[in-house]
Every structure is written in C-alpha cells, then in structure tokens.
C-alpha cells in the first residue's frame, strides 16, 4: 500500500515537471497554428525552422558564444580556484565570497551593470560584450566545481610528484590536473549550459547583429508565438536529453565499480541548486 502511494506521488511529481515539455513537443507536430486545437500531424514547422535564417543565425551565435565563453571561463576559473586553494584562510574566505557574489546577485543587476560598464568604456555592444558578459557569469560556476575537487585531493599527491622528480609545473600537469579534471569538465559543461540558457544578461549586452537564440525566441513570441519556436524548443530538449544520456552511459562504462558510486555523488553535488 505504502509502496503504491509512493509510486503515485513520484508519478505526479514527474508529470508536473514534464507535462509542459510534452505539450510543447506535441504542439510542434500540430498542423494548426492554434495551440489549443489538434488538427493533424505535420513536420512543416521543422522544415520551416531550417529555412528560417534568423533562427539559424542566432543558433550559431549562441553556440559560438557558449563555446568561446566556456573555454575562457574554464581556464580562468580553474586558475582562480587553484589560487584560492593556496591562499591563507582569511584571504580565501574573503575572495571566495567575492567570487560567489555574481551567482547570488540578481541577473538583471549583473546585466544592467555590465551594459553600463561597456557603454562607459565605449565598447560597442556585440559579440565581444556578449562573450565578456558570459565569461563573467560562468567563472564562478567553474570555481565552484573545481575548488571541491582540489580540497578532496590529497595534498601529498603534489608532493609525491615532486618527490619522484617532477618540477612544480610538471607535477601540476601530470598529477593535479588529472585529479581535478572531473571538476573542470563539470564546470565547463555547466558554463555551456548557462551560456546557452542565459537570457537576461544577454539581453542587456547584445548588439543588433549578435542576437542569441533565447533573445530571438523572445522577440518572436512578442509578436505571436510561431510554432517554429515549438519545433526549435523540442529539438533543443531532445538534443540535451541525448547528450545527457550519452554522457552518463559512457561514464558508467568507463568507471570501475567503486568509482561509479563516487561519480554519482559528484554528479549530485554538481547539479544546479
């Protein structure tokens, strides 16, 4: 009995979470433009989508910006995390809090202040400002993911590498980097996700020619929601789902039994709060 209620409860939770997405996916195949009436199955919206230059252009923008910003943020964030890790306790606490501030700060404040800064510095709003803005809000997430890995690492590992003949640089490359790699990767993937996801900050920092996908979708829905947007959203959802499944499966295959449990724990910690 208890088991049954548990299952019903879980079912309800999942239903609540996923019904909107299923409605959207269903609508993307709806022949009618109306969102309430089902008139027949069609691929038209998908075909139209792939002929829509604006959408495809902004998709490309989004991907380029996400990639560039994430790589830069991962580099900066990893170096910052190592710096913070080696600081004295008081300085470390202060610097950590400062670097976490952008996460707590309302996005709209970050967006507006970045825009003001760029305008004040006379940097034309466009690709450069978008990338800079995205790096700014991605760096804390990388730090947040790399720092725990550094803390978990046995400090003696680095010393053991020195002991066996590594110069400090070599020890860092051969031992520290592989140890914190999962954190770096999580940070990188989170950066990509947030960068693709971001609307508010991008809204304030983009230029006329550098629209990202969320901004394009937003401006499309302002007029009337085109079913093309449904099709686009459905594709995004499926792609993300596929990436997630592939990642998890390959992780499971790669890791031996005991590390699997650890990875599961790390994944939980890495998830968005």
């Amino acid at each position: 009995m208890r088991k049954l209620t548990n299952r019903i409860y879980i079912g309800l939770v999942f239903l609540f979470l996923y019904i909107p997405i299923f409605v959207l996916i269903a609508n993307s195949f709806n022949a009618s433009k109306s969102r309430t009436v089902w008139t027949g199955f069609t691929f038209d919206w998908y075909v139209k989508l792939f002929h829509n230059e604006t959408i495809l252009g902004s998709l490309l923008n989004t991907l380029i910006i996400a990639l560039v910003a994430s790589v830069a943020a991962t580099l900066l964030g990893t170096l910052a995390a190592i710096g913070i890790y080696n600081m004295k306790k008081v300085t470390r606490t202060i610097v950590m809090n400062i670097s976490y501030l952008p996460i707590i700060n309302p996005e709209i404040v970050t967006g507006v202040s970045l825009m003001l800064l760029f305008v004040a510095m006379k940097i034309e709003l466009g690709y450069v400002t978008l990338i800079l803005a995205h790096i700014t809000f991605c760096v804390p997430y990388v730090i947040l993911n790399v720092l725990p890995k550094l803390r978990q690492m046995d400090r003696n590992l680095y010393e053991a590498a020195l002991d066996l003949g590594c110069t400090p640089t070599l020890a860092f490359r051969k031992v520290v980097i592989p140890e914190i790699m999962p954190g770096i990767m999580t940070g990188f993937l989170m950066s990509i996700t947030y960068s693709i996801d971001d609307f508010v900050i991008s809204y304030f920092t983009h230029g006329a020619t550098s629209q990202t996908l969320p901004i394009t979708i937003f401006s499309m829905t302002r007029r009337k929601v085109s079913p093309e947007v449904n099709a686009l959203s459905a594709i995004l959802f499926v792609v993300i789902l596929a990436i997630m499944i592939i990642m998890n499966v390959s992780e499971m295959r790669k890791l031996p039994e005991d590390q699997r449990r650890r990875a599961a724990k790390a994944a939980k910690k890495g998830g968005r709060a």
Partner: peptide, 20 residues
Amino acid sequence: VPPYKRAVNTVFQKYALFPH
C-alpha cells in the same frame, strides 16, 4: 635544493598514490 633534485624518495603516510 628542491625535492625533485634530491636523492631521496618518500613513502607518504596516506600513500599518495596517483588515482588516475
């Protein structure tokens, strides 16, 4: 002289084996 240039090697308390 830094550790990597000394003719000594260490067995650490918690082994410090490279997990990867």
